[in-house]
Nucleic acid binder design. Structure first.
Length: 509
RNA sequence: GACCCCGUAGCUCAGUGGUAGAGCAUCUGACUUUUAAUCAGAGGGCCGCAGGUUCGAUCCCUGCCGGGGUCACCA
């Protein structure tokens, strides 16, 4: 095997690897039995009774080494944190020689007894040292210091965003808050599942590869199925399949799904993202608002241990129930200082002009309302706010408002200026649904390539009959941002989409 | 897609029209309770890529590649 070395550090590690093997050390052994995690030791050590930790085995990655001649301190890091280890040459002469060949980043097993050093740190006194994996590339070296107030000062943090996203494994090793972010994300999803499961709603899986895409307004990714010689789309939403399941007789179904939208990438958008959708039979959007409030309050309390969310600037957003509820047109009216309800298209256009809201040529009423809202209202919606009752043209899958036929029974939840959730009383009248699809077809014919596609089978399902149903979608990534105070959706997605790197230039020997 | 900013050692960054510097990391030596360990010494760079201007470019200009941000698009 020909190995090319990018630099002296890598070359040196390969040389150490050879030396270790020549001394009969297996650099990549198969397993190691641990008795404790780092945190179990730190949490249970008692100065008045160290005997309970007189023989422990731990394993982890070497994150710091302080060699002092015939004694060495090093920190190893496992999934829960770091712990210091101590090894003396005169006690373990052979293994001390091995330690000379180890580096930052190597993974080792340490067996020994636990004590407290003179400077007060609980430490494992090494009596056996095992190499568990030789690391052949240098890790970014991040050092930490504690000031007199106990605050951790991080020196030279691995901060280059491109490298952090491309090499998430390194990011996770050297930036503890990153690991914490993804643990919080996972706990959040677990808490949501628990909430739904405990109410008897069924988690299901619906197609990612779809012959027709629907359930949202977005450009899809297209692919091709050779076996059936047909184009397929990656789902932009799972809404139409989940409603078919309500038709089928399930009374509560949910799915946590990866969706794919062929649109721009920015702090709030990744081409693939995680959505939660849930549909509950015999309920309407009023019920769904209450449920959403309860869900978020429950999950937030469970995940964060407090009833507030976190913004990227460090400020907290209290989750006080009930959340504010405001009708869309009222919210706009409040911002522009005049009622919107009876506005003609011309009056709306003048309002847009007055507030510097940019519009496409010949915009519809709904488009102008949407633009006014996005520009003037949405950025102000920091504390949780349900915005309700949207124009029917903007919501082709939502049921008409029971008392305002030009509106639909829909709400969106905004927190921190972000749209977090979207929900309707679901349209279950197949006649109205067909009309709405036909309207979408007209928009599509007029050049709107994000208008929805008519789905005959979905209409057939509605003709079979769907009970009154409330549906809800939640942007899981954005909710995770609020749980962790992340500034970008990329900070809550383990492997965000990146352009491929240019190939590494091969190095001559 | 448009505009702005960025790309220098493994990491974090300085810097100059005369082909580079720091801290940490690495290497050699000293050190048996250290913790940003310390002390002495050393090595390490196609300064993102390509072209142009210039006697001379890492620096100025253009294009490209990659990243970040703002906007547009979009939830």
């Amino acid at each position: 095997m020909q190995t090319e070395f990018a630099n002296d550090q890598i070359r040196h590690r390969y040389e150490e690897l050879q030396t270790l093997e020549s001394r009969g050390i297996e650099p990549f052994p198969y397993s190691y039995d641990r008795t404790h995690s780092s945190q179990q030791i730190l949490a249970t050590f008692r100065d008045d009774d160290p005997s309970s930790l007189a023989d422990v085995s731990i394993a982890g990655r070497i994150m710091a080494i302080r060699r002092m001649g015939k004694a060495t301190f090093f920190h190893i890091q496992d999934a829960e944190g770091k712990i210091q280890c101590y090894i003396k040459a005169d006690e373990l002469p052979e293994q001390y020689e091995i330690l000379r060949l180890l580096d930052l980043g190597d993974i080792v097993g340490v067996r020994g007894f636990v004590f407290r050093t003179r400077t007060g740190e609980v430490t494992v006194h090494c009596q056996q040292l095992h190499l568990l994996c030789k690391s052949l590339r240098p890790l970014p070296v991040v050092k930490e210091e504690r000031d007199e107030h106990g605050n951790v000062i991080v020196h030279d943090a691995f901060s280059d965003k491109e490298q952090r996203y491309r090499r998430r494994y390194i990011d996770l090793i050297v930036n503890p808050h990153v690991r914490e972010t993804f643990i919080v994300r996972s706990r959040m999803i677990t808490a949501i599942r628990r909430y739904f499961d405990s109410r008897g709603w069924l988690e299901v899986e619906t197609p990612i590869l779809q012959p027709l895409y629907g359930g949202a307004s977005a450009r899809p990714f297209t692919t091709y199925l050779n076996a059936l010689d047909m184009p397929l789309y990656l789902r932009i939403a799972d809404e139409l399949y989940l409603k078919r399941l309500i038709v089928g007789g399930f009374e509560g179904v949910y799915e946590i799904s990866k969706n794919f939208r062929n649109e721009g990438i920015d702090r709030m958008h990744n081409p693939e993202f995680t959505a939660l959708e849930i549909y509950v039979a015999y309920r309407d959007y009023h019920w769904m608002m209450d449920m959403t409030e309860d869900l978020l309050a429950t999950v937030t309390a469970e995940v964060r241990g407090q009833s507030s969310l976190l913004r990227a600037d460090g400020s907290e957003i209290p989750l006080q129930r009930p959340f504010r509820r405001v009708r869309l047109l009222d919210a706009i009216a409040e911002s522009v200082g005049q009622p919107i309800n009876g506005c003609s298209e011309q009056e709306l256009a003048m309002l847009c002009k007055r507030f510097d809201v940019e519009l496409p040529p010949s915009p519809s009423r709904a488009k102008m309302i949407d633009e006014l809202f996005s520009k003037l209202v949405q950025p102000q919606l920091v504390e949780p706010t349900f915005v309700t009752d949207y124009p029917v043209e903007m919501s082709p899958l939502a049921k008409r408002h029971r008392s305002e036929p030009s509106l639909v029974e829909r709400f969106e939840l905004f927190i921190g200026g972000m749209e977090i959730a979207n929900a309707f009383s679901e349209l279950n009248d197949p006649r109205d649904q067909r009309q709405r699809f036909e309207e979408q077809a007209r928009l599509r014919a007029g050049g709107d390539d994000e208008a929805m596609v008519l789905d005959e089978d979905f209409l057939m399902a509605l003709e079979i009959g769907m009970p009154p149903t409330a549906g809800l979608g939640i942007g899981i990534d954005r909710l995770a941002m609020l749980m962790t105070g992340a500034a970008s959706i990329r900070d809550v997605i383990l492997f965000p989409l990146m352009r491929p790197e240019p190939p590494h230039r091969p190095l001559e020997e």
